[in-house]
C-alpha cells in the first residue's frame, strides 16, 4: 500500500479539561472518500478542524502527504510548525463549512476568485475563467454577480463548494454541509458532490447526517463516538450489518429501523 495521504498518530486534543481525543489513530488513502457519522459532540468537527489548522493538537503527529502538518523539521528536530509551514501545508486542503461562511461583502465571483488570485498569484483572467467553469459545475452560472445574501441556503452552499474547489485542494473536508439547509434544498447540494466525484478523483473526508448519501458515495464509513472510531468499514457492511451495539443504536435512532 502507498503512503496514506492523511495519517493521525497518537493524536491528543483537549479543550481545557475536556479531552476530545486521547490517543487517536486514523488513516485515509489517496482518492478515498470517507464518511464520518456519529452523535453530536463526539469530535467529528474537531477532527476536520484540526486538519484545516483551525485547531491545534496537544500531542501526537499528523501527516499530510507524508509531511507533518503541525510540526516541521528544524535543525534535525521536530518543532511546532510556524506560520510559513502551516501556509504551505494548507495548500493540500480545502474545507466547506456547515454555515457556508461566504464573504458577504464580495460578489459570488469574487468569493471564488479572491483566494486563487491573492494566495496563488493566478491572473485575474485565469481565475475568472476558472470561476465560471466552477459556477457552471454547481449550476450557478447566472449568479456570478450576485451577493451571497441574495442567494438561498442551497445556492450559498454550492458557492461554498465552488470556492473551496477553486484552490484545487487535494483533500476536501466537508463538515455537515447540508445541516443548515431546509430539507428541500439538501439534494441540490448533494448532487453537486455526486457529480464532482463522478468526474474527478478526490480525497474527501465528510461529516454527515445524511445516511443514504454516506452509503452511496463513500468508500469507507467511520462511526465515531466520544472521540474514537467505534466501527468502520464498507458502507454496505456498516449500514446493513453493524457489529457494535453503539453503532446499531445510533443507526436505529437515525434510520428509524
Amino acid at each position: 500500500m502507498s503512503t496514506p495521504i492523511i495519517e493521525f498518530k497518537n493524536v491528543k486534543k483537549c479543550f481545557g479539561e475536556t479531552v476530545i481525543f486521547s490517543d487517536f489513530n486514523f488513516k485515509v488513502e489517496e482518492n478515498e472518500i470517507v464518511s464520518i457519522i456519529g452523535p453530536s459532540g463526539s469530535g467529528k468537527s474537531t477532527l476536520l478542524r484540526i486538519l484545516m489548522t483551525l485547531e491545534g493538537i496537544d500531542g501526537g503527529y499528523i501527516n499530510i502527504a507524508g509531511e507533518s502538518l503541525w510540526h516541521m523539521l528544524w535543525q534535525g528536530q521536530y518543532v511546532p510548525a510556524n506560520n510559513k509551514h502551516l501556509h504551505k501545508m494548507r495548500n493540500h486542503l480545502g474545507m466547506v463549512f456547515q454555515h457556508f461562511n461566504l464573504f458577504p461583502h464580495m460578489t459570488v465571483k469574487r468569493n471564488i476568485t479572491e483566494a486563487p488570485m491573492r494566495v496563488k498569484g493566478i491572473s485575474r483572467e485565469e481565475a475568472e475563467a476558472s470561476a465560471e467553469r466552477l459556477l457552471q459545475l454547481v449550476g450557478l452560472a447566472d449568479k456570478a454577480d450576485s451577493y451571497p445574501n441574495d442567494l438561498s441556503g442551497g445556492q450559498k452552499q454550492r458557492v461554498g463548494i465552488a470556492r473551496a474547489l477553486a484552490m484545487k485542494p487535494s483533500i476536501l473536508l466537508l463538515d455537515e454541509i447540508t445541516s443548515a439547509l431546509d430539507p428541500e434544498l439538501v439534494d441540490e447540494v448533494l448532487d453537486v458532490i455526486r457529480n464532482l466525484v463522478k468526474e474527478e478523483s478526490f480525497t474527501m473526508l465528510l461529516v454527515t447526517h445524511e445516511m443514504y448519501f454516506a452509503r452511496e458515495i463513500s468508500d469507507r464509513v467511520c462511526f465515531f463516538d466520544k472521540g474514537a472510531i467505534v466501527e468502520e468499514g464498507k458502507p454496505e457492511a456498516i449500514f446493513t450489518q453493524p457489529q457494535e451495539e453503539r453503532t446499531k443504536a445510533f443507526l436505529n435512532a437515525y434510520l428509524g429501523q
Binding site: 484545516m52 489548522t53 483551525l54 506560520n83 501556509h87 494548507r90 495548500n91 486542503l93 480545502g94 474545507m95 463549512f97 454555515h99 457556508f100 461562511n101 461566504l102 464573504f103 479572491e114 483566494a115 491573492r118 494566495v119 470556492r163 473551496a164 484552490m167
Partner: peptide, 21 residues
C-alpha cells in the same frame, strides 16, 4: 463572525490579507 476568519484560513490567506481583505 468567527466563521469569516475560519473561512479565510481555510482559503490560506495570510494574516495580513485576512485582516484587510
Amino acid at each position: 463572525p468567527k466563521g469569516q476568519f475560519e473561512a479565510s484560513i481555510a482559503l490560506n490567506f495570510t494574516a495580513t490579507q485576512r485582516l484587510w481583505r
